[in-house]
Design a protein around this nucleic acid. Sequence first.
DNA 1: TCAAGAATTGACCAATGGGACAATTAACAT
DNA 2: ATGTTAATTGTCCCATTGGTCAATTCTTGA
Lengths: 204, 204
Amino acid sequence: MKLTRLSDIRRRELRRAAFEVLQEQGMAGATLEKVAAHAGASKGIVLHYFRNKQELFEHAMREANAGLGAAVAARLARTPDPRARISAVIECNFEPRFFQPSICHAWLSLCAEVPRDATLARIQRVIHARMRSNLVSALRALVPPEAVEGLALGISALIDGYWLRLGLRAGSVTGDDAVRQINLYVDAMIDASRARPVATALAR
Amino acid sequence: MKLTRLSDIRRRELRRAAFEVLQEQGMAGATLEKVAAHAGASKGIVLHYFRNKQELFEHAMREANAGLGAAVAARLARTPDPRARISAVIECNFEPRFFQPSICHAWLSLCAEVPRDATLARIQRVIHARMRSNLVSALRALVPPEAVEGLALGISALIDGYWLRLGLRAGSVTGDDAVRQINLYVDAMIDASRARPVATALAR
DNA sequence: TCAAGAATTGACCAATGGGACAATTAACAT
DNA sequence: ATGTTAATTGTCCCATTGGTCAATTCTTGA
């Protein structure tokens, strides 16, 4: 099992460095040399561990998302109540260690490449699917079936929207604001779906 | 008055071309030569009308947004009812001529540059301010004062979120879906702010 | 200890792209 | 006509960058 250990360490260092450089330089500025320098290595080593720039940043994207994924999974593991699970998902996304302008910048740069990189698109799809799945499973216990998918998408969109705001204008939203607002939204929609089940059904 | 007419025409052609190339090639792929070719001109002419690549794309961003801005203004001009004004803003954003994956791709590429281009940031800020202003003025007549700003931001975020979805996974949302969902959100929040004014107030 | 393989480096290359510029052409006022 | 200005082109240049490769330095297992 220790066969690939050193190599794994290097790979991790490098994809982290890649993501960090991405945060402040954007995709165009995130040159192989800068990434290497940021990791205290030479450019050659980067291409020794990754076939090319594309592959490097694909791994960087996975790495960057892994943290959030783990945080969500951990909180969900100790949160049985459906409504609380929704909140857990939301809150994780706005934890200070994740909800940072520079991270958002890097993320934006990655997203901008999605249309032209099938692998990035796949990663993005997986990320969305996981979020949807977490939300949907909790929502089933909270709203009528016809409202589940739409609300899950809405919550995701709202989370993304607040995130986007952070990236485009740092300081325009705090994590707490966002969490509060989104939870307000969730409550309002749950209430609405109960108070007006017909309207919700029609809304499909 | 006709002094700058020809030059203005060229400039418009070029910034449009720039935006169109951006749609399918992204910022890195949107080279001056490609933009020129797309406009049926030579690279030299591009730098004759724009100081550099940055300036070109700053103008492209303005141009791209002008259409939406005009559409919103036009609809608002003939929509007095506050709640209908909110809907008008929302619907404009999801009109088929605007709500297109390729447009979103170009937009994403631009947004990714915002952190490193002060002018792009300024443009983005103006766009947001206009949207906020439109929403806020209508919301004042619909919800308690303490809920206005938060809700305006929420609506903006939700719009952005659905847009982002479209860019990252074309076909995952239709414009109609988005409009319907966002209107549901608006109604739910309006109701909630009336039914539970205290909760809303506290939520500040 | 030593050989085999992995890690790492630095030099090198070809391609590209942004931008400068001189030269040419078109537009137009007098 | 003609001179002046604007429009347009194509060429040239330089810096940068992704990627290759041979050479060198570790590791490490036997």
